[in-house]
Design a protein around this nucleic acid. Structure first.
Length: 603
DNA sequence: TTAGGTTTCG
Protein backbone atom coordinates (compact mmCIF):
# COMPACT_ATOMS: atom_id res chain seq x y z
CA UNK A 1 0.00 0.00 0.00
CA UNK A 2 1.40 3.42 -0.84
CA UNK A 3 2.21 5.67 2.05
CA UNK A 4 0.36 8.95 1.85
CA UNK A 5 -0.05 11.81 4.18
CA UNK A 6 -2.90 14.01 3.19
CA UNK A 7 -2.96 17.46 4.66
CA UNK A 8 -6.02 19.52 4.06
CA UNK A 9 -5.51 23.10 5.09
CA UNK A 10 -9.11 24.15 5.49
CA UNK A 11 -11.94 22.20 6.88
CA UNK A 12 -13.27 19.83 4.34
CA UNK A 13 -16.82 18.58 4.26
CA UNK A 14 -15.81 15.22 2.87
CA UNK A 15 -12.50 13.50 3.50
CA UNK A 16 -11.40 11.76 0.28
CA UNK A 17 -10.72 8.24 1.51
CA UNK A 18 -10.42 5.20 -0.77
CA UNK A 19 -13.77 3.44 -0.96
CA UNK A 20 -12.48 0.06 0.18
CA UNK A 21 -11.68 1.44 3.64
CA UNK A 22 -14.22 1.07 6.42
CA UNK A 23 -14.21 2.85 9.74
CA UNK A 24 -13.13 0.77 12.74
CA UNK A 25 -14.63 1.47 16.12
CA UNK A 26 -12.23 1.99 19.03
CA UNK A 27 -13.96 -0.88 20.88
CA UNK A 28 -13.14 -3.28 18.04
CA UNK A 29 -9.39 -2.63 18.01
CA UNK A 30 -7.90 -5.86 19.37
CA UNK A 31 -4.61 -7.58 18.75
CA UNK A 32 -4.88 -10.70 16.63
CA UNK A 33 -7.91 -9.32 14.74
CA UNK A 34 -7.84 -8.59 11.03
CA UNK A 35 -7.87 -4.83 10.45
CA UNK A 36 -7.18 -4.98 6.72
CA UNK A 37 -9.23 -2.41 4.81
CA UNK A 38 -10.14 -0.67 8.07
CA UNK A 39 -9.20 2.80 9.20
CA UNK A 40 -9.24 4.44 12.60
CA UNK A 41 -10.07 8.12 13.02
CA UNK A 42 -9.36 10.28 16.03
CA UNK A 43 -8.53 13.77 17.23
CA UNK A 44 -4.95 14.48 18.27
CA UNK A 45 -5.15 15.36 21.98
CA UNK A 46 -1.51 14.92 22.88
CA UNK A 47 1.84 14.55 21.14
CA UNK A 48 5.29 13.77 22.52
CA UNK A 49 8.62 15.18 21.29
CA UNK A 50 10.15 13.44 18.28
CA UNK A 51 12.89 11.08 19.45
CA UNK A 52 15.15 8.36 18.14
CA UNK A 53 15.00 4.75 19.27
CA UNK A 54 18.19 2.91 20.26
CA UNK A 55 18.51 1.51 16.71
CA UNK A 56 18.45 5.03 15.25
CA UNK A 57 14.85 4.89 13.99
CA UNK A 58 12.84 8.09 14.33
CA UNK A 59 9.93 7.73 16.74
CA UNK A 60 6.89 9.90 17.39
CA UNK A 61 4.06 9.20 19.79
CA UNK A 62 0.63 10.80 19.76
CA UNK A 63 -2.65 10.18 21.56
CA UNK A 64 -5.92 10.06 19.64
CA UNK A 65 -9.34 10.56 21.12
CA UNK A 66 -12.31 8.81 19.54
CA UNK A 67 -15.14 11.34 19.14
CA UNK A 68 -17.66 8.52 18.74
CA UNK A 69 -16.88 7.19 22.21
CA UNK A 70 -16.55 10.42 24.20
CA UNK A 71 -19.04 9.23 26.79
CA UNK A 72 -17.21 6.01 27.51
CA UNK A 73 -14.58 6.03 30.25
CA UNK A 74 -11.89 4.74 27.95
CA UNK A 75 -11.87 6.84 24.78
CA UNK A 76 -8.25 7.39 23.80
CA UNK A 77 -5.48 5.30 22.29
CA UNK A 78 -1.69 5.65 21.87
CA UNK A 79 -0.33 5.73 18.33
CA UNK A 80 3.38 4.95 17.87
CA UNK A 81 4.82 6.19 14.59
CA UNK A 82 8.17 4.91 13.32
CA UNK A 83 10.75 5.94 10.72
CA UNK A 84 10.23 8.51 7.97
CA UNK A 85 6.54 8.79 8.82
CA UNK A 86 7.46 9.87 12.35
CA UNK A 87 9.50 12.74 10.90
CA UNK A 88 6.70 13.73 8.51
CA UNK A 89 4.01 13.64 11.17
CA UNK A 90 6.07 15.55 13.72
CA UNK A 91 6.32 18.41 11.22
CA UNK A 92 2.63 18.95 10.74
CA UNK A 93 0.66 17.50 13.62
CA UNK A 94 -1.07 19.90 15.98
CA UNK A 95 -3.52 19.25 18.77
CA UNK A 96 -7.13 19.29 17.66
CA UNK A 97 -6.38 18.00 14.16
CA UNK A 98 -8.06 14.91 12.78
CA UNK A 99 -5.79 11.92 12.24
CA UNK A 100 -6.91 8.96 10.14
CA UNK A 101 -4.79 5.86 9.74
CA UNK A 102 -5.11 2.65 7.75
CA UNK A 103 -2.71 -0.27 7.54
CA UNK A 104 -1.76 -0.21 11.23
CA UNK A 105 -0.69 -2.96 13.62
CA UNK A 106 -2.62 -3.45 16.86
CA UNK A 107 -0.29 -4.36 19.73
CA UNK A 108 -1.01 -4.87 23.47
CA UNK A 109 -0.14 -1.60 25.17
CA UNK A 110 2.46 -2.02 27.96
CA UNK A 111 1.40 1.31 29.48
CA UNK A 112 -2.40 0.79 29.49
CA UNK A 113 -2.56 0.20 33.23
CA UNK A 114 -0.66 3.45 33.95
CA UNK A 115 -2.17 5.82 31.37
CA UNK A 116 -5.75 4.51 31.44
CA UNK A 117 -5.96 4.41 27.64
CA UNK A 118 -6.92 1.60 25.31
CA UNK A 119 -5.46 -1.85 26.14
CA UNK A 120 -3.77 -1.81 22.75
CA UNK A 121 -1.78 0.78 20.87
CA UNK A 122 -1.45 1.29 17.09
CA UNK A 123 1.88 0.91 15.35
CA UNK A 124 2.28 2.93 12.20
CA UNK A 125 5.17 2.87 9.72
CA UNK A 126 6.01 2.68 6.04
CA UNK A 127 7.20 -0.88 6.55
CA UNK A 128 3.80 -1.85 7.97
CA UNK A 129 2.19 -0.38 4.84
CA UNK A 130 0.44 2.36 6.79
CA UNK A 131 -1.40 5.25 5.19
CA UNK A 132 -2.21 8.44 7.09
CA UNK A 133 -4.89 10.89 6.06
CA UNK A 134 -4.49 14.06 7.97
CA UNK A 135 -6.97 16.87 8.33
CA UNK A 136 -5.70 20.14 9.69
CA UNK A 137 -8.75 21.82 11.18
CA UNK A 138 -7.52 25.41 11.20
CA UNK A 139 -5.43 27.30 8.70
CA UNK A 140 -2.30 28.65 10.34
CA UNK A 141 -2.11 32.32 9.46
CA UNK A 142 1.53 32.92 10.32
CA UNK A 143 3.91 32.17 7.48
CA UNK A 144 7.33 31.81 9.04
CA UNK A 145 10.27 33.14 7.02
CA UNK A 146 12.26 29.94 7.20
CA UNK A 147 11.12 26.49 8.20
CA UNK A 148 14.48 25.25 9.51
CA UNK A 149 14.95 25.54 13.22
CA UNK A 150 11.27 26.08 13.95
CA UNK A 151 9.68 24.56 16.94
CA UNK A 152 7.97 21.88 14.96
CA UNK A 153 5.91 20.65 17.87
CA UNK A 154 4.10 23.96 17.86
CA UNK A 155 4.00 25.33 14.32
CA UNK A 156 3.79 24.10 10.81
CA UNK A 157 4.24 26.13 7.67
CA UNK A 158 1.78 25.83 4.84
CA UNK A 159 3.73 26.75 1.71
CA UNK A 160 1.77 28.94 -0.66
CA UNK A 161 2.08 27.49 -4.14
CA UNK A 162 1.71 29.59 -7.26
CA UNK A 163 0.63 27.86 -10.45
CA UNK A 164 1.70 29.10 -13.87
CA UNK A 165 -0.68 28.82 -16.85
CA UNK A 166 0.87 26.97 -19.78
CA UNK A 167 0.99 30.13 -21.93
CA UNK A 168 3.17 31.93 -19.37
CA UNK A 169 6.04 29.46 -19.15
CA UNK A 170 9.58 30.84 -19.52
CA UNK A 171 12.79 29.07 -20.48
CA UNK A 172 15.04 28.18 -17.56
CA UNK A 173 12.40 28.49 -14.81
CA UNK A 174 11.14 25.93 -12.31
CA UNK A 175 7.37 26.20 -11.89
CA UNK A 176 4.23 24.57 -10.50
CA UNK A 177 1.43 23.87 -12.94
CA UNK A 178 -1.86 22.16 -13.59
CA UNK A 179 -2.81 20.48 -16.84
CA UNK A 180 -5.19 18.09 -18.51
CA UNK A 181 -3.47 15.06 -20.04
CA UNK A 182 -3.83 15.19 -23.80
CA UNK A 183 -1.32 12.44 -24.49
CA UNK A 184 0.94 10.24 -22.40
CA UNK A 185 3.36 7.37 -22.58
CA UNK A 186 3.01 5.10 -19.55
CA UNK A 187 6.33 4.77 -17.70
CA UNK A 188 8.87 2.60 -19.48
CA UNK A 189 12.49 1.70 -18.94
CA UNK A 190 14.65 4.33 -20.64
CA UNK A 191 18.02 3.60 -22.20
CA UNK A 192 19.62 5.36 -19.25
CA UNK A 193 19.16 4.50 -15.59
CA UNK A 194 15.58 5.68 -15.02
CA UNK A 195 11.99 5.05 -15.94
CA UNK A 196 10.66 7.59 -18.39
CA UNK A 197 7.18 8.91 -19.01
CA UNK A 198 6.22 11.52 -21.60
CA UNK A 199 3.14 13.59 -20.85
CA UNK A 200 1.51 16.27 -22.99
CA UNK A 201 -0.71 18.71 -21.11
CA UNK A 202 -3.17 21.38 -22.14
CA UNK A 203 -4.97 23.98 -20.06
CA UNK A 204 -7.59 26.68 -20.64
CA UNK A 205 -4.87 28.95 -22.07
CA UNK A 206 -4.99 26.48 -24.96
CA UNK A 207 -1.23 25.99 -24.94
CA UNK A 208 0.29 22.51 -25.12
CA UNK A 209 3.26 21.43 -23.03
CA UNK A 210 5.10 18.16 -23.51
CA UNK A 211 6.94 17.02 -20.40
CA UNK A 212 9.64 14.39 -20.26
CA UNK A 213 9.70 12.89 -16.81
CA UNK A 214 12.44 10.65 -15.43
CA UNK A 215 12.69 8.81 -12.14
CA UNK A 216 14.52 5.73 -10.94
CA UNK A 217 11.44 4.83 -8.93
CA UNK A 218 8.42 3.84 -11.04
CA UNK A 219 6.10 4.94 -8.25
CA UNK A 220 7.38 8.51 -8.35
CA UNK A 221 6.15 9.16 -11.88
CA UNK A 222 2.57 10.44 -12.31
CA UNK A 223 -0.06 7.71 -12.13
CA UNK A 224 -1.84 8.60 -15.36
CA UNK A 225 -4.23 5.99 -16.67
CA UNK A 226 -6.13 7.74 -19.41
CA UNK A 227 -6.35 10.80 -21.64
CA UNK A 228 -8.29 13.48 -19.74
CA UNK A 229 -6.69 12.76 -16.34
CA UNK A 230 -5.66 15.94 -14.55
CA UNK A 231 -2.19 16.45 -13.10
CA UNK A 232 -0.61 18.87 -10.73
CA UNK A 233 3.16 19.15 -11.13
CA UNK A 234 5.34 20.83 -8.53
CA UNK A 235 8.85 22.04 -9.31
CA UNK A 236 8.99 21.10 -12.98
CA UNK A 237 11.82 22.66 -14.97
CA UNK A 238 10.91 24.52 -18.15
CA UNK A 239 13.33 24.52 -21.09
CA UNK A 240 13.11 25.52 -24.69
CA UNK A 241 13.57 22.69 -27.15
CA UNK A 242 13.09 22.94 -30.92
CA UNK A 243 11.43 26.33 -30.55
CA UNK A 244 8.86 25.06 -28.02
CA UNK A 245 8.66 24.99 -24.27
CA UNK A 246 9.33 21.60 -22.73
CA UNK A 247 8.91 20.36 -19.17
CA UNK A 248 11.49 18.11 -17.55
CA UNK A 249 11.81 16.66 -14.04
CA UNK A 250 13.96 18.68 -11.68
CA UNK A 251 15.27 17.61 -8.30
CA UNK A 252 12.19 18.21 -6.17
CA UNK A 253 9.61 17.20 -8.75
CA UNK A 254 6.33 15.89 -7.30
CA UNK A 255 2.97 15.18 -8.86
CA UNK A 256 -0.67 14.52 -8.06
CA UNK A 257 -2.98 12.88 -10.59
CA UNK A 258 -6.78 13.03 -10.56
CA UNK A 259 -9.50 11.31 -12.49
CA UNK A 260 -10.70 13.84 -15.06
CA UNK A 261 -14.34 12.76 -14.97
CA UNK A 262 -16.78 15.47 -13.93
CA UNK A 263 -18.39 14.44 -10.65
CA UNK A 264 -15.87 11.71 -9.75
CA UNK A 265 -14.37 11.89 -6.23
CA UNK A 266 -11.40 14.27 -6.07
CA UNK A 267 -8.85 11.80 -4.72
CA UNK A 268 -5.21 12.45 -5.63
CA UNK A 269 -2.98 9.61 -6.82
CA UNK A 270 0.56 10.15 -5.62
CA UNK A 271 3.53 8.54 -4.01
CA UNK A 272 4.37 11.68 -2.03
CA UNK A 273 4.19 11.15 1.71
CA UNK A 274 3.32 14.73 2.42
CA UNK A 275 1.47 17.13 0.22
CA UNK A 276 -0.82 20.09 0.51
CA UNK A 277 -4.29 20.06 -0.89
CA UNK A 278 -6.53 23.00 -0.23
CA UNK A 279 -10.19 23.74 -0.93
CA UNK A 280 -8.97 26.18 -3.55
CA UNK A 281 -7.10 23.38 -5.30
CA UNK A 282 -10.11 21.10 -5.04
CA UNK A 283 -12.01 23.77 -6.96
CA UNK A 284 -9.23 24.04 -9.56
CA UNK A 285 -9.58 20.31 -10.31
CA UNK A 286 -13.34 20.58 -10.67
CA UNK A 287 -13.02 23.62 -12.96
CA UNK A 288 -10.44 21.85 -15.12
CA UNK A 289 -12.72 18.83 -15.38
CA UNK A 290 -15.53 20.99 -16.70
CA UNK A 291 -13.20 22.76 -19.15
CA UNK A 292 -11.72 19.44 -20.34
CA UNK A 293 -15.15 17.91 -20.87
CA UNK A 294 -15.72 20.20 -23.84
CA UNK A 295 -12.14 20.97 -24.88
CA UNK A 296 -10.14 17.75 -24.65
CA UNK A 297 -11.12 14.77 -26.72
CA UNK A 298 -10.86 11.63 -24.64
CA UNK A 299 -12.52 9.47 -27.26
CA UNK A 300 -9.33 7.43 -27.28
CA UNK A 301 -9.02 4.05 -28.89
CA UNK A 302 -10.30 1.99 -25.98
CA UNK A 303 -11.92 -1.25 -27.08
CA UNK A 304 -13.27 -4.48 -25.73
CA UNK A 305 -12.08 -7.75 -27.25
CA UNK A 306 -15.56 -8.15 -28.71
CA UNK A 307 -15.10 -4.87 -30.55
CA UNK A 308 -11.60 -5.19 -32.01
CA UNK A 309 -11.17 -4.13 -35.60
CA UNK A 310 -8.57 -5.95 -37.68
CA UNK A 311 -5.62 -3.81 -38.76
CA UNK A 312 -6.21 -1.17 -36.13
CA UNK A 313 -4.52 -0.14 -32.90
CA UNK A 314 -6.45 -0.03 -29.64
CA UNK A 315 -6.17 0.26 -25.85
CA UNK A 316 -7.40 -2.64 -23.76
CA UNK A 317 -8.32 -2.86 -20.08
CA UNK A 318 -7.97 -6.48 -19.06
CA UNK A 319 -6.86 -9.01 -16.47
CA UNK A 320 -3.67 -11.03 -16.79
CA UNK A 321 -4.36 -14.78 -16.74
CA UNK A 322 -1.04 -16.20 -17.90
CA UNK A 323 2.40 -15.21 -19.15
CA UNK A 324 5.31 -16.97 -20.79
CA UNK A 325 8.74 -16.25 -22.19
CA UNK A 326 8.89 -16.76 -25.92
CA UNK A 327 12.38 -15.67 -26.91
CA UNK A 328 14.90 -12.94 -26.07
CA UNK A 329 12.94 -10.14 -27.69
CA UNK A 330 9.33 -11.14 -27.11
CA UNK A 331 7.09 -12.19 -24.24
CA UNK A 332 3.58 -13.61 -24.17
CA UNK A 333 0.68 -12.23 -22.11
CA UNK A 334 -2.56 -14.19 -21.92
CA UNK A 335 -5.36 -11.84 -20.97
CA UNK A 336 -9.15 -11.63 -20.88
CA UNK A 337 -11.76 -8.91 -20.53
CA UNK A 338 -14.84 -11.12 -20.32
CA UNK A 339 -15.87 -10.57 -23.93
CA UNK A 340 -15.29 -12.85 -26.89
CA UNK A 341 -13.10 -11.72 -29.75
CA UNK A 342 -15.31 -12.14 -32.86
CA UNK A 343 -12.41 -13.37 -34.99
CA UNK A 344 -10.27 -16.45 -34.58
CA UNK A 345 -7.18 -15.19 -32.77
CA UNK A 346 -3.76 -16.76 -32.82
CA UNK A 347 -2.33 -18.89 -30.09
CA UNK A 348 1.39 -18.34 -29.62
CA UNK A 349 3.09 -21.72 -29.18
CA UNK A 350 5.06 -21.88 -25.91
CA UNK A 351 6.50 -24.71 -23.85
CA UNK A 352 4.03 -25.77 -21.15
CA UNK A 353 6.79 -25.41 -18.56
CA UNK A 354 7.30 -21.75 -19.56
CA UNK A 355 3.65 -20.82 -19.10
CA UNK A 356 3.00 -19.12 -15.76
CA UNK A 357 -0.53 -18.90 -14.40
CA UNK A 358 -3.03 -21.04 -12.61
CA UNK A 359 -3.56 -24.09 -14.85
CA UNK A 360 -7.22 -24.56 -13.97
CA UNK A 361 -7.95 -20.88 -14.58
CA UNK A 362 -6.13 -20.92 -17.93
CA UNK A 363 -8.14 -23.96 -18.91
CA UNK A 364 -11.43 -22.54 -17.67
CA UNK A 365 -10.96 -19.28 -19.59
CA UNK A 366 -9.24 -20.66 -22.67
CA UNK A 367 -12.06 -19.64 -25.02
CA UNK A 368 -12.08 -16.09 -23.71
CA UNK A 369 -8.36 -15.39 -23.36
CA UNK A 370 -6.29 -13.96 -26.17
CA UNK A 371 -2.54 -13.99 -26.66
CA UNK A 372 -0.71 -10.69 -26.84
CA UNK A 373 2.91 -10.83 -27.88
CA UNK A 374 4.92 -7.92 -26.50
CA UNK A 375 8.31 -6.99 -27.87
CA UNK A 376 11.63 -5.39 -27.01
CA UNK A 377 11.41 -2.64 -24.41
CA UNK A 378 8.04 -3.94 -23.12
CA UNK A 379 9.44 -7.38 -22.24
CA UNK A 380 11.08 -6.19 -19.03
CA UNK A 381 7.82 -4.76 -17.64
CA UNK A 382 5.75 -7.69 -18.94
CA UNK A 383 7.96 -10.18 -17.09
CA UNK A 384 7.38 -8.35 -13.81
CA UNK A 385 3.58 -8.41 -14.07
CA UNK A 386 1.64 -10.41 -11.48
CA UNK A 387 -0.91 -12.98 -12.64
CA UNK A 388 -4.39 -11.70 -11.80
CA UNK A 389 -3.37 -8.04 -11.99
CA UNK A 390 -5.42 -5.56 -13.97
CA UNK A 391 -3.71 -3.95 -16.91
CA UNK A 392 -4.26 -1.33 -19.50
CA UNK A 393 -2.29 -2.15 -22.61
CA UNK A 394 -1.93 0.84 -24.89
CA UNK A 395 -1.86 0.70 -28.68
CA UNK A 396 -2.11 -3.01 -29.26
CA UNK A 397 -1.89 -3.83 -32.95
CA UNK A 398 -4.69 -6.10 -34.19
CA UNK A 399 -2.86 -7.58 -37.13
CA UNK A 400 -4.73 -9.52 -39.73
CA UNK A 401 -2.85 -12.62 -40.87
CA UNK A 402 -4.13 -14.30 -44.00
CA UNK A 403 -4.58 -18.01 -44.47
CA UNK A 404 -1.41 -19.84 -45.46
CA UNK A 405 0.50 -23.04 -44.68
CA UNK A 406 -2.69 -24.72 -43.60
CA UNK A 407 -3.66 -21.96 -41.15
CA UNK A 408 -7.02 -20.31 -41.40
CA UNK A 409 -6.82 -16.53 -41.53
CA UNK A 410 -6.76 -15.10 -38.01
CA UNK A 411 -6.06 -12.01 -35.98
CA UNK A 412 -2.79 -11.47 -34.11
CA UNK A 413 -2.27 -9.10 -31.18
CA UNK A 414 1.12 -7.40 -31.01
CA UNK A 415 2.52 -4.80 -28.69
CA UNK A 416 5.37 -3.74 -30.93
CA UNK A 417 8.66 -2.37 -29.64
CA UNK A 418 9.07 1.34 -29.06
CA UNK A 419 6.79 3.83 -27.38
CA UNK A 420 5.19 5.67 -30.33
CA UNK A 421 1.58 6.66 -29.78
CA UNK A 422 1.95 5.86 -26.08
CA UNK A 423 2.48 2.16 -26.77
CA UNK A 424 3.06 0.40 -23.44
CA UNK A 425 1.63 -1.40 -20.44
CA UNK A 426 0.17 0.18 -17.32
CA UNK A 427 -0.81 -1.66 -14.13
CA UNK A 428 -4.13 -0.37 -12.77
CA UNK A 429 -4.77 -0.42 -9.02
CA UNK A 430 -7.71 -2.41 -7.66
CA UNK A 431 -9.56 0.76 -6.67
CA UNK A 432 -9.46 2.24 -10.19
CA UNK A 433 -13.06 2.84 -11.34
CA UNK A 434 -12.46 1.06 -14.66
CA UNK A 435 -11.04 -1.93 -12.80
CA UNK A 436 -14.05 -2.02 -10.47
CA UNK A 437 -16.33 -2.02 -13.48
CA UNK A 438 -14.28 -4.72 -15.23
CA UNK A 439 -14.19 -6.88 -12.08
CA UNK A 440 -17.95 -6.69 -11.74
CA UNK A 441 -18.31 -7.64 -15.39
CA UNK A 442 -15.85 -10.54 -15.16
CA UNK A 443 -17.77 -11.86 -12.16
CA UNK A 444 -20.96 -11.76 -14.20
CA UNK A 445 -19.55 -13.70 -17.16
CA UNK A 446 -21.27 -17.05 -17.58
CA UNK A 447 -18.32 -19.36 -18.03
CA UNK A 448 -20.64 -22.28 -18.86
CA UNK A 449 -21.65 -20.27 -21.90
CA UNK A 450 -18.09 -20.06 -23.11
CA UNK A 451 -17.77 -23.82 -22.60
CA UNK A 452 -20.68 -24.24 -25.04
CA UNK A 453 -18.81 -22.07 -27.46
CA UNK A 454 -15.97 -24.54 -27.21
CA UNK A 455 -18.14 -27.58 -27.90
CA UNK A 456 -19.48 -25.82 -30.97
CA UNK A 457 -15.94 -25.33 -32.17
CA UNK A 458 -15.07 -28.94 -31.57
CA UNK A 459 -17.95 -30.31 -33.63
CA UNK A 460 -17.07 -27.96 -36.47
CA UNK A 461 -20.11 -25.74 -36.27
CA UNK A 462 -17.82 -22.83 -35.63
CA UNK A 463 -14.41 -23.84 -36.98
CA UNK A 464 -15.68 -24.47 -40.51
CA UNK A 465 -16.61 -20.85 -40.56
CA UNK A 466 -13.52 -19.39 -39.05
CA UNK A 467 -12.21 -17.83 -42.21
CA UNK A 468 -11.58 -14.21 -41.32
CA UNK A 469 -12.71 -12.87 -44.68
CA UNK A 470 -16.01 -14.67 -44.23
CA UNK A 471 -16.36 -13.05 -40.84
CA UNK A 472 -15.65 -9.67 -42.35
CA UNK A 473 -18.18 -10.22 -45.10
CA UNK A 474 -20.72 -11.36 -42.58
CA UNK A 475 -20.12 -8.30 -40.42
CA UNK A 476 -20.75 -6.05 -43.39
CA UNK A 477 -24.15 -7.60 -44.01
CA UNK A 478 -27.33 -6.48 -42.37
CA UNK A 479 -27.83 -8.49 -39.21
CA UNK A 480 -31.25 -9.82 -40.19
CA UNK A 481 -32.31 -11.45 -43.41
CA UNK A 482 -36.06 -11.69 -43.92
CA UNK A 483 -37.27 -14.47 -46.17
CA UNK A 484 -40.58 -13.57 -47.74
CA UNK A 485 -41.32 -16.99 -49.21
CA UNK A 486 -43.04 -19.93 -47.49
CA UNK A 487 -44.31 -17.84 -44.60
CA UNK A 488 -47.14 -20.38 -44.27
CA UNK A 489 -44.69 -23.05 -43.04
CA UNK A 490 -43.43 -22.95 -39.48
CA UNK A 491 -39.78 -23.67 -38.74
CA UNK A 492 -38.72 -27.25 -38.10
CA UNK A 493 -35.66 -28.35 -36.18
CA UNK A 494 -32.86 -29.98 -38.22
CA UNK A 495 -32.99 -32.97 -35.84
CA UNK A 496 -36.61 -33.66 -36.82
CA UNK A 497 -35.81 -33.40 -40.51
CA UNK A 498 -32.87 -35.80 -40.21
CA UNK A 499 -35.21 -38.40 -38.66
CA UNK A 500 -37.92 -37.97 -41.31
CA UNK A 501 -38.42 -39.80 -44.56
CA UNK A 502 -38.12 -38.01 -47.91
CA UNK A 503 -39.78 -36.34 -49.71
CA UNK A 504 -41.18 -33.71 -47.35
CA UNK A 505 -41.44 -29.91 -47.33
CA UNK A 506 -39.92 -27.98 -44.46
CA UNK A 507 -38.91 -24.48 -43.53
CA UNK A 508 -35.83 -24.11 -41.37
CA UNK A 509 -33.96 -21.43 -39.54
CA UNK A 510 -30.32 -22.46 -39.10
CA UNK A 511 -26.81 -21.16 -38.75
CA UNK A 512 -24.66 -21.45 -41.88
CA UNK A 513 -21.99 -24.02 -41.19
CA UNK A 514 -20.21 -24.42 -44.48
CA UNK A 515 -20.91 -23.77 -48.11
CA UNK A 516 -19.68 -24.71 -51.60
CA UNK A 517 -18.01 -23.61 -53.71
CA UNK A 518 -15.58 -22.12 -51.17
CA UNK A 519 -13.98 -19.81 -53.74
CA UNK A 520 -15.85 -17.40 -55.95
CA UNK A 521 -13.98 -18.39 -59.13
CA UNK A 522 -15.32 -21.93 -58.69
CA UNK A 523 -18.80 -20.56 -59.34
CA UNK A 524 -17.85 -19.76 -62.92
CA UNK A 525 -17.08 -22.47 -65.51
CA UNK A 526 -15.44 -22.23 -68.89
CA UNK A 527 -17.81 -23.46 -71.59
CA UNK A 528 -16.83 -24.48 -75.14
CA UNK A 529 -19.75 -23.84 -77.49
CA UNK A 530 -18.28 -26.20 -80.12
CA UNK A 531 -17.69 -29.34 -78.09
CA UNK A 532 -20.02 -28.29 -75.27
CA UNK A 533 -17.37 -29.14 -72.67
CA UNK A 534 -17.41 -27.42 -69.26
CA UNK A 535 -14.13 -26.70 -67.47
CA UNK A 536 -13.04 -25.13 -64.20
CA UNK A 537 -11.46 -21.69 -64.39
CA UNK A 538 -7.78 -22.46 -63.86
CA UNK A 539 -6.31 -21.45 -60.49
CA UNK A 540 -3.16 -19.33 -60.15
CA UNK A 541 -0.54 -22.03 -60.74
CA UNK A 542 -2.36 -23.59 -63.69
CA UNK A 543 -2.84 -20.17 -65.21
CA UNK A 544 0.90 -19.44 -65.06
CA UNK A 545 1.52 -22.77 -66.76
CA UNK A 546 -0.95 -21.97 -69.56
CA UNK A 547 0.67 -18.56 -70.12
CA UNK A 548 4.13 -20.17 -70.27
CA UNK A 549 2.76 -22.67 -72.73
CA UNK A 550 1.34 -19.97 -75.02
CA UNK A 551 4.64 -18.09 -74.89
CA UNK A 552 6.33 -20.77 -76.97
CA UNK A 553 3.58 -20.66 -79.61
CA UNK A 554 4.19 -18.25 -82.46
CA UNK A 555 1.84 -15.22 -82.61
CA UNK A 556 -1.15 -15.62 -84.88
CA UNK A 557 -0.73 -13.30 -87.96
CA UNK A 558 -4.48 -13.31 -88.47
CA UNK A 559 -4.85 -11.29 -85.32
CA UNK A 560 -2.67 -8.38 -86.50
CA UNK A 561 -3.86 -4.86 -87.25
CA UNK A 562 -7.54 -4.75 -86.50
CA UNK A 563 -9.76 -1.70 -86.22
CA UNK A 564 -9.02 -1.36 -82.52
CA UNK A 565 -5.27 -1.94 -82.41
CA UNK A 566 -2.12 -1.64 -84.51
CA UNK A 567 0.37 -4.52 -84.35
CA UNK A 568 4.14 -4.57 -84.68
CA UNK A 569 6.14 -7.82 -84.83
CA UNK A 570 9.84 -8.43 -84.32
CA UNK A 571 12.12 -11.40 -83.88
CA UNK A 572 14.34 -11.71 -80.82
CA UNK A 573 18.11 -11.63 -81.34
CA UNK A 574 18.83 -14.65 -79.15
CA UNK A 575 19.19 -18.23 -80.36
CA UNK A 576 15.50 -18.97 -79.92
CA UNK A 577 14.57 -16.32 -82.52
CA UNK A 578 11.14 -15.86 -80.88
CA UNK A 579 8.54 -13.85 -82.73
CA UNK A 580 6.92 -11.22 -80.52
CA UNK A 581 3.98 -9.02 -81.45
CA UNK A 582 2.96 -5.85 -79.63
CA UNK A 583 -0.60 -4.65 -80.18
CA UNK A 584 -1.11 -0.90 -79.53
CA UNK A 585 -4.73 -0.49 -78.54
CA UNK A 586 -6.48 2.52 -80.15
CA UNK A 587 -8.85 4.85 -78.37
CA UNK A 588 -11.78 6.04 -80.53
CA UNK A 589 -9.91 4.41 -83.42
CA UNK A 590 -6.94 6.73 -82.81
CA UNK A 591 -3.50 5.80 -81.54
CA UNK A 592 -2.58 7.53 -78.29
CA UNK A 593 0.75 8.82 -76.97
CA UNK A 594 2.88 5.74 -76.10
CA UNK A 595 2.74 6.46 -72.35
CA UNK A 596 -1.07 6.49 -72.49
CA UNK A 597 -1.43 3.42 -74.65
CA UNK A 598 -2.66 0.04 -73.53
CA UNK A 599 -0.33 -2.67 -74.85
CA UNK A 600 -1.02 -6.33 -75.47
CA UNK A 601 1.95 -8.59 -75.98
CA UNK A 602 1.75 -11.84 -77.88
CA UNK A 603 4.40 -14.54 -78.15
C1' DT B 1 22.16 10.23 -19.00
C1' DT B 2 17.65 8.71 -20.31
C1' DA B 3 13.75 11.47 -24.39
C1' DG B 4 12.40 15.23 -26.88
C1' DG B 5 4.62 12.08 -28.83
C1' DT B 6 2.96 10.68 -34.23
C1' DT B 7 2.40 3.08 -34.68
C1' DT B 8 5.87 -2.73 -36.55
C1' DC B 9 7.18 -5.06 -40.13
C1' DG B 10 8.40 -9.97 -35.29
Amino acid sequence: MPVELLKIIKEQSEIPLPRHLQKEDLKHLQDGHDHTNKYFQGIVILSYPLTKLSDGTDFFKIVLQDLDNLCSRMNSINVLIHGKMALDCAKIIRHGDTFIVAGFKVIKSPTARDDGRHVCHLEVSEEAGSTIYYVQTKMLQIILPCSSGNNQDTFSVAPKYVYTPLNRLKDGTIVNLYGVVKFFKPPYVSKGTDYCSVVTLVDPSNVKLTCTLFNGNLDSLPKIYKIGDIVRFHRIKIREYNGQMQGITSGGFASLTFDGTVGAPVVPRTSSRVYTFTDEEHKTIEDLRVWAASNVSNSGSAAKLSGVQPMLFFDLTCQLVGKAKVDGSSFLLKIWDGTKCPYPSWKVPVEAKDLEGEKSRLRQLRNLTVDILVYDNHVHLAKSLKIGSFLRIYSIHAKQASADNGNVSHIEFHLHGGTCYGRGIGVLPENNPDVKELKAFLDSVDLADSQNMESMELDGTYSDFTDLESHLQRCQQLPVTVLTDHQDLSNTELKTIMNSTAPQQYRIRAKLRTYKPQKLHQSVKLHCSKCNSLQEVPNGDDFDFILQDSAITAPNPELHNTSWYDSVMWTTQDQKQRKIVIHFVKHDEMLQQPEDTLLMIEG
